[in-house]
Amino acid sequence: MSDDHVYLTLAEGHEDDARWAYGTGFEDPLHGVDTTVPDGVDAGELAASCVVLADDALVSAQRLAEWTTRAPELEEEVALANIGLDLLGQARLLYARAGQVDGSGRGEDAYAYFRDADDFRNVRLAELPGGDFAFSVVRLLVLSSWRLAHFERLMASPDPVLAAIAAKGVKELTYHRQYAAEWVVRLGDGTEESHRRTRTALEQVAPYLGELFTAYDVRDEVVAVLRQVTEAGGLPMPVYRPLPGAGRSGDHTEHLAPLLAELQSVARAHPEATW
């Protein structure tokens, strides 16, 4: 089965379903796909990898959703919402794959809505409050560059399902990175105020870069992107100042629990609801 065929099957909709599942109306995002774990692939490691990547995407999408009705222009509101929807789609597929291979049989809703903050494994940069627009696009630039570099590697995964998810994600993340890069350059090379805010955003993001570079060996690629963008915007490269702790081990900031409380509130209040 080719990666293209796998992805087309993954994306196939089933309108009769009415579970939460982010309101997409899919019965099963892996419906019709051979989900057998290939020989030589550790099912536990595969599931864990899918969950951490899905957690990054879900939490990032929730932060982007906070810009709805608050973005500086309608066009940017739509763009940020669409980027968030891309990430939700990635999260859904990754959670579904994790549930297929970890032996639990859990669906996407169980991972997204019925785990506490201590159980999430997203990187801490994703959970920080949105701040101003400059901070949001700087964070998006960093996270999309980092995720894109990792997904490009995952396209060669021995698991065809994960490889197909990554291949589709690469196309989306390429746009996410381009969108963020254009805004960072525009703000950095704009007014004195926009430059100041973007410079401050880079300083705020800097302490969290170490966690990204520790998690995956993509440091050189991400640094190259940041250097190119900051130079174009007349901005300084963020100075690497690592903080102790890591979201991958469940050590989160105080900001994740409130974010999840809002995200999960309706599903937890009506756990058997359909719509």
Rank of each mutant, 00 (worst) to 15 (best):
L8Q: 12
E12G: 01
D17S: 09
A18L: 11
A21W: 08
G25N: 08
L30A: 08
L30G: 05
G32V: 00
T35G: 08
V37G: 09
D39S: 14
G40H: 10
G40N: 10
G44F: 01
V51L: 04
V51D: 06
D55N: 01
V59S: 02
R63N: 14
R63W: 09
A71S: 06
P72A: 04
E76Y: 03
E76R: 11
E77H: 04
A81E: 07
N82R: 14
D86V: 13
L88F: 15
L93W: 14
A98C: 07
A98G: 05
Q100H: 06
V101E: 08
S104Q: 11
R106F: 05
G107H: 07
Y113L: 03
F114G: 02
A117M: 02
A117K: 00
D118H: 07
R121Y: 04
R121T: 10
R121H: 08
R124F: 10
A126D: 06
G131F: 00
D132V: 00
D132Y: 01
S144Y: 09
W146R: 12
W146Y: 15
L148S: 12
F151P: 03
F151Y: 15
M155K: 13
P158I: 15
D159I: 06
V161N: 11
A164W: 09
L173G: 03
T174F: 01
Y175S: 00
H176R: 09
V184L: 06
R186V: 07
E193Y: 02
R197E: 13
R197D: 11
T200H: 06
Y208W: 13
E211A: 10
E211C: 12
D217C: 09
V218C: 13
R219A: 15
D220T: 12
D220Y: 11
D220N: 10
E221C: 06
V222C: 12
V225R: 12
V225F: 06
Q228N: 08
G233L: 02
M237K: 03
Y240W: 13
R241I: 12
R241P: 03
L243C: 10
H252A: 04
P258H: 14
E262Q: 09
S265A: 15
R268D: 07
R268H: 08
H270K: 10
T274W: 12
W275S: 11
